[in-house]
Design a protein around this nucleic acid. Sequence first.
DNA 1: TATAAAATCGTAATCATTCCTATTTACAAA
DNA 2: TTTGTAAATAGGAATGATTACGATTTTATA
Lengths: 137, 137
Amino acid sequence: MNTSDAIELLKKKGYKTTGKRKDILSFFEDADGYRTAKDLIQHLESTYDGISFDTIYRNLHLYHEVGILEVTELNGEKHFRMNCASHHHHHFICKDCGKTKEIEVCPMEEVRKSLANYEIEDHKFEIYGLCPQCQDV
Amino acid sequence: MNTSDAIELLKKKGYKTTGKRKDILSFFEDADGYRTAKDLIQHLESTYDGISFDTIYRNLHLYHEVGILEVTELNGEKHFRMNCASHHHHHFICKDCGKTKEIEVCPMEEVRKSLANYEIEDHKFEIYGLCPQCQDV
DNA sequence: TATAAAATCGTAATCATTCCTATTTACAAA
DNA sequence: TTTGTAAATAGGAATGATTACGATTTTATA
């Protein structure tokens, strides 16, 4: 998913296009990893003085709802990244810079067998650590 | 891990035994799944009127630190359960009642190969849904 | 260009969690 | 058994992320 695909998707669903919405999208397109609401506010404040929490969180939720963003919860804070689910995969997440690396392994097929009678709604497989760039500080 | 093992471990580490500490342990021993700080407060309030947040959170942190409790973050809230890591495994977690089922599959061996140069510190593999008991409501 | 619906602002409220000081308690040593 | 002291707790304020909401502004379109 990239910014223009996302704008297209939003239009198709009847949502309006605003400067802030576009900037939020490019922020995540450039980020190439997980970012928090705080990160986003900091980025937008230079352009839009006095931007409201409401705007930030409303759009983060909206984007997640329509599948533009993925969410994960780390250290009591929600982290968002551009959805890259063209195919199913998981992520290594760098604790330092938030950048991600795709992991193709998914053990769910095998797991399903051991969960007969259980209704599986979702699953999460994440690996945490330091990416090569963040190791020598 | 059960209550008496935990008390033993705490003593060995030089921590004092109090009624509250014991009750917190039995709460989790009986729980057989993930519980929140709020759940714990509700449980303790009937016995200890006016119990302090400090006591709750200090002990949750302590128990996590020494390995009595495991933690996971769901819906903006930390969830705790008795540590059952006699061997490495993961969990199915019921969204309704918090009960867990052990999952023996762990794909980390395979994953490590694709993460050369990455420093792996931790990983999380959880399956969410409804357990058989919670499906027909 | 007028209009209605959607988006945003400004700010207060909420919720989980952390922090702080005074007081109480557990337990080891006398 | 008493006592000294470090650890534990109470009570409540503070913090940080997130949500809520009435008033205002902006977008899309007729």
